[in-house]
Design a protein around this nucleic acid. Structure first.
Lengths: 345, 345
DNA sequence: ATGAAAGCGCTAACAC
DNA sequence: GTGTTAGCGCTTTCAT
């Protein structure tokens, strides 16, 4: 059907291997034959067959992306498209293609990964999230298959190359920002407790409070999915407390949007009554009213670095696992206010 | 390295071809040998190599997904993850994998598609959008490569299998909904004019107005990107008119959010002062205040049907191009009000 | 019902 | 520098 290396070889009066070498730009081929072969390629409209090359090379130049279950929150959150853009860019630069796998259940996802890995469809895999006790991590580790995780691995941190923010510090800083404004009754609205990032952020939050001698109030800590409704639910729980918080750390902008909406409904004004710091600094942060003070975790970069890191592993195997830390910055906008300002009125 | 068909054959005391037939569940193999071979497979942990199979079969069981340029609006809009979920589900059911390609410029994207197609990395391609004069469509058509587009093709509609809503009728109905409420000064806030969907919706809008004898007012028609800011911009233009509209058709929920925000800032109340019908019925529609009356175009289904349609083409080639129409429904919420109700006050 | 052997398109070791 | 040849792992005629 398609035009093959043999056709080119015939037209250029050389051996197929020579054509192959020209493709690889092998320096041992004379410029003259290179020229001749290239002309033949152009004339025939030749294009190398990646599948055949993959089989011969034992390498596909494809990266597998593992997404969490598709019914999941993950897809709806703007985190996903952004990290995908980063991944795509990093892969593109090195001429890698991206293949995605997902599924409704954990089992389906694992199945997809096994297909990719054992079927040799991909050279390596990137996990777009880090969960507690992830069976996929165990599987990949066991088979010694190249992979990178975005986020902090739950176990075996030293054996797994990962790209992550310093979520502990980021949340500590965010909390301290609120503390500096005079807040002490600070709530923490976290995501799924199965996600390592939630655990890390919770620790940072607790640390900040402990270091100023404030006791952790467990009723101030709630966990909801990373979606707008999650924020709505959280507010219901928190604002019904006898002594409701004066400030909140919300671990996702989309949730924060829900929080804002629900507070608004109950006639609480942000930041007058409640101060909010959220995370991710996605588009909506700027457009909400009030504009959200949010921790920018550089989502694009997380993806970009993950691609680069995996390709690096593929190009030079057997290196030590690395941890790539992507910096965060707190983007201060209008959702926080000094507690004093209000009390002092 | 991995365990191959030969290893299995050896262990089971059969020829490699027999093992291959067992994998394909060929009926001409006796149950006894099937049994024997399967045991050997299990014992060795055999897993077929997809790459080798692809080469022998000339088919990869991979579908290529073409996304618009990655800097684009598309990634940020919730449309994308939803359609992806649909695509993924349709592909998964038939054991197809999904490979994505994207790029910063049109050239990069075309390049990616060429890689996929000529490199024989994929069996078919799905375009996740339909643009005016798309060079990728021309390319695929020219090479007679199997593909499906989501949306209505700009040209060659009868030669291209596509999955689409009836956007013309949907918009006509949406506009009529507003007309029934007494509105005549209705604005149309559309997306990129390069997108066929924008053109279709504009036609439906115009048709509805024409059929009641209202002349089209070009200053009521604005085009902005499918993002929240787009909505903000549109409102600036529209509400500065001498005779501003009393209702708006907004072709995307995210834009509508921007519209709502900007109107709110200018002290216009929705639906009291302005009625709004938007499109897509994504998550935000329900959570906005007021809740948006929105045309649900069934995004998941668009993706799901597109996968199915492409796989169908791959399984039985040379069939006629089909048009698959995904139904829409207007979900009435709280963003529209009868003009009479207000005037009558 | 099963085996032998050729071939999918490319690469790479080995020759010269 | 370039050609010859043997695979990569699987499928598929063609024999038997």
């Amino acid at each position: 059907m398609g035009v093959t290396i043999k056709d080119v070889a015939k037209l250029a009066n050389v051996a197929p291997s020579t054509v192959s070498r020209v493709i690889a730009n092998n320096p041992r081929i004379s410029d003259k034959t290179k020229q001749k072969v290239r002309e033949a390629m152009d004339e025939l409209g030749y294009h190398p067959n990646f599948i055949a090359r993959s089989l011969a090379n034992q390498s596909t130049k494809v990266i597998g992306l593992v997404l969490p279950s598709s019914g999941d929150v993950f897809f709806q959150n703007p985190f996903f498209p952004t990290v995908l853009r980063g991944l795509s860019e990093g892969a593109h630069e090195k001429n890698f293609a991206l293949q995605i796998t997902t599924g409704q259940t954990d089992e389906e996802i694992l199945d997809g990964v096994v297909q990719m890995v054992q079927g040799r469809r991909v050279d390596g895999v990137i996990l777009l999230y880090s969960r507690v006790n992830d069976q996929i991590v165990s599987y990949l580790l066991e088979r010694d298959f190249p992979f990178v995780v975005i986020g902090k691995p739950f176990k075996h941190e030293d054996r797994i190359t990962h790209v992550d923010n310093d979520n502990f510090s980021a949340t500590k800083e965010a909390t301290q920002h609120l503390i500096r404004l005079g807040h002490e009754r600070i709530a923490f609205i976290g995501g799924d407790l199965e996600l390592v990032v939630t655990l890390e952020r919770l620790l940072g939050y607790e640390k900040a409070l402990e270091s100023i001698g404030v006791e952790i109030n467990n009723s101030y800590i709630v966990h909801e999915p990373f979606l707008e409704e999650g924020g709505v639910e959280a507010v219901k729980k928190l604002m019904n407390l006898v002594s409701p918080p004066t400030a909140m750390i919300v671990t996702d902008d989309l949730m924060a949007l829900g929080v804002l909406k629900k507070l608004n409904e109950h006639q609480y004004k942000v930041p007058r009554d409640i101060s909010i710091v959220s995370f991710n600094n996605v588009l909506f942060g700027e457009l909400s009213r009030p504009q959200l003070t949010s921790v920018d975790i550089n989502i694009f970069e997380l993806g970009y670095q993950a691609s680069k890191a995996l390709i690096d592993i593929l190009e030079t195997p057997n290196q030590e696992a690395r941890r790539i830390s992507v910096p965060h910055t707190i983007v201060v906008r209008q959702s926080c206010q000094s507690l004093g300002e209000y009390v002092g009125l």
